[in-house]
Design a protein around this nucleic acid. Structure first.
Lengths: 127, 127, 127, 127
DNA sequence: GTGGTCTAGACCACT
DNA sequence: GTGGTCTAGACCACT
């Protein structure tokens, strides 16, 4: 599992971490039940503070995609987890904004989306 | 042009303003060349600080959808404006994250997107 | 609103804070919509770190009894808020343990509970 | 005597052990004077570290519900045992918090308590 | 002045 | 070795 953090990004590090781990889950490189690296290990690997990793893990637990067990954190077994109403609302808001942006800049949002999907599938590991 | 601000939202007010104005442009209620309300007027109309309006206008100028002229700000005439590489990169990042979220939560992103488009078109004023 | 923290207790400070604020809500000394002290003010008042206050506030938000608005945190207007299934499960577990303890030590749990209620009502401010 | 441990619970294993054994005492499946399984046996039965069992037993001794004898540990003969002031204080604190939570979430604490009692009595073995 | 993010580092509980 | 709690302090975004 490769984690890539852009330290110059305006997106908080813990948010980037959350996205990267969900990407791992979506692509199947992180399997249900698989343990996540320990908070301290991942922090020192990436070169960030352990609190930052912890915040990301806690958020993933809140979203239901990661669970906390005695020995640490692991990918939730239930897939897909229930999505909260609040989270879905935020997603819809983001989609609305993207649609508006696409109209303003005359971009084909459906096309961009399909490209994104294709790119992601290309990163999927073969069995 | 109706501007709706949610003061309790976690989304910064200036960001909401930017989105609302772009929505006006996308829907055609703000035409190319049309002047925007003065910073002071809009600020007192909405009941926010004038720095907040200014920040929103400046961002819209940076995105190329608004231009600053002698007497104030107006919607750029060229439609669609050129999208900056940086902004496109941000958009693609958002799309990637949405696609991943949709995979993780087993949502049909294409369907959500089409619903958003239909909703938006429904808000479009008739000629 | 008086906040009392026992620094020698094994109960984490942020948990004590959560309980104290909920007590304030239950007793009516914290009214719906009322703003909470700022994270930094409360922290310096009590003499603890601002992160500790923040953690307590975040938990209260998660429980739905506090909401976060632009200018800070305030008591949620909707009372009572919906209780989450997970939280209710924890409560039932605690009750079960209390019932067992009462049986083992031959205490009248109903009586203890009524005393607690009476004591609490005694602390309620009169109109 | 059945011991059920939830290894994924956030409740420490030794705490769960303490509760389970007190439940056995309350229900009468563990009689006064009855020997407890040896630390090593119970640990290997449950599949946990023997330090964990030891910690649970020591806590039960501290609470006066278990005594340590030459050949090991056994249920105290005197029933009910004296409850320590410290322990009673902790119990009252828990009750206070439950009462507050019930007020905040508009739950009928007396009803919940009665349900818990009924459930427990239902688990009681018949003579 | 409000909260958010992040760091560096300490001590503790659980197993 | 795992996460939890807490501190002290810094810089930043929003208004």
């Amino acid at each position: 599992m490769m984690i890539e953090i852009d330290f110059d990004s305006e997106v908080p590090i813990y948010t980037q971490l959350v996205c990267q781990i969900k990407k791992g889950i979506a692509l199947g490189s992180l399997a249900p039940g698989e343990p996540l690296p320990s908070v301290r290990n991942l922090a020192s690997d990436i070169g960030i503070n352990l609190h930052t990793v912890n915040k990301a893990y806690k958020q993933l637990v809140g979203e239901g995609v990661v669970i906390q067990v005695k020995k640490g954190y692991e990918i939730a077994k239930k897939t897909p987890p229930d999505i909260s109403e609040a989270y879905l609302k935020v997603m819809m808001q983001q989609i609305d904004n993207l649609v508006v942006d696409a109209m303003v800049f005359d971009l084909d949002i459906l096309d961009l989306l399909k490209k994104s999907k294709t790119k992601l599938e290309g990163e999927m590991p073969r069995d």
